[in-house]
Design a protein around this nucleic acid. Structure first.
Lengths: 221, 221
DNA sequence: TAAAATTATACGGAAAACCGTAACAGCTAA
DNA sequence: TTAGCTGTTACGGTTTTCCGTATAATTTTA
């Protein structure tokens, strides 16, 4: 059972509402903070004093203000927190709606839940907390299907690098040199072309412009 | 002075907070609704009964749910509202951070204020309401400068059309035909190329991919 | 360890995009 | 009216991309 929860959320309105939901779920202790650094300090202190938090509920984007922060986003906070307390449960509470981003939170950050801010966030957050309390992973409705539809392509690191270079205005023929310098393989022009062609075939695209637009929409680059 | 305010916001958390701020500004009457259609009905009814609202505070994106709506976004709501009550003051309260979008709200919708959801939204919303009460226009800090930096280009309808076609994977050489069908001028390939070149020169880009990426980031297409 | 399969790269012709030049139309002002 | 300006379009040469094929390198498999 979850007994001690920390909420990191800079959105004045949301944080109180989140806390209220947590309290209604009969969780004894719930604190909230506005800054990532404060969150990390708390996690560390409570861990050291032998009474660690069970769950972290955090936003992703924290608007910058006068206070300079070490940790500038929820992603950095999660990574830092998991370093000192690997078994900490994490639920992300964010407005992000780009599938690729959400997917990467589960895949790369191994978070336990994701709730998208919106009309039904209160209900969903409740479900997410309950699921996580049972040791389950909570995904928003529809995401599981979107993550692997038939016409889809798993973008690798290599793909992202090449596409980013393209989006920066690099010519196809100068990219091989850049890849060599970055120590990325395969670096040959043909291999790169082949890869790009493969992606475009799978997604049924015919031009690089279209692919770039798609990646921007999905948040891949 | 503002005496009667309507808040349209589907975000359970925010709407109450917004209402609270409005009430603290000593505005006698403040109602809130979760759906665009409800907002429009209220505006219409109160207008007909001779006690119209002075100010509408609305979000842009309303998440869809089981209730089918005529008006699906804040933009549609604002247009519909201004049709029946042209002098209605409008403040947008949204998470949108893409400069081009915010710019178009002021330019095309002629809204009186924009407040971005974030850490300081409560303070900003207060300022915005006060400014609008005095008949002023409230823009978020920094936007005025971003709207017209030296290396900037005012994208026209024509530009957006051509760039959208490009982003859809259309070949440069098939676009002239499409433009003719859409009855858009100039439709010649040369004119189009010239225009694209001009944009790329101004923005210091060298490839269409780069331009598409930029437009996606700015929310232009 | 050799054969087979997969992956990386090189090459070259075809297609498309890029870019400068020039012709043409419409408009303005002396 | 005519010279000048602006905007549209056509044309053609150069560069870049696209794409199929062939060869080389690497990994897998028997």
């Amino acid at each position: 059972m979850l007994e001690k929860v920390l909420v990191a959320e800079d959105h004045q309105n949301s944080s109180k509402a989140v806390t209220k939901i947590i309290e209604e779920l009969a969780i004894p202790l719930c604190h909230y903070v506005y800054y990532c650094d404060d969150a990390f300090t708390r996690l560390k202190n409570e861990l050291n004093s032998g009474r660690p938090y069970d769950l972290l509920v955090t936003d992703i984007s924290f608007i910058e203000d006068h206070r300079t922060q070490q940790l500038k986003s929820g992603v950095e906070l999660i990574i830092a927190a998991r370093e000192i307390q690997p078994q900490l449960k994490v639920i992300i509470f964010s407005g992000e709606d780009r599938t690729a981003k959400i997917q990467s939170y589960f895949k790369d950050l191994k978070v336990d839940g994701y709730v998208q801010k919106g009309r039904t966030d209160a209900i969903e957050l409740e479900k997410a907390v309950e699921a996580v309390a049972k040791g389950q992973v909570y995904m928003p409705p529809g995401i599981r299907e979107k993550i692997n539809p038939s016409h889809s392509h798993q973008f690798t690191n290599y793909d992202v690098t090449v596409l980013s270079l393209l989006a920066e205005g690099k010519k196809l023929q100068e990219i091989p040199d850049l890849l060599v310098k970055l120590n990325i393989s395969p670096s040959g022009k043909s291999s790169m072309e082949k890869r790009l062609n493969h992606i475009k075939t799978v997604l049924d695209f015919n031009k690089n412009e279209q692919l770039i637009a798609f990646c921007k929409d999905m948040g891949i680059i």
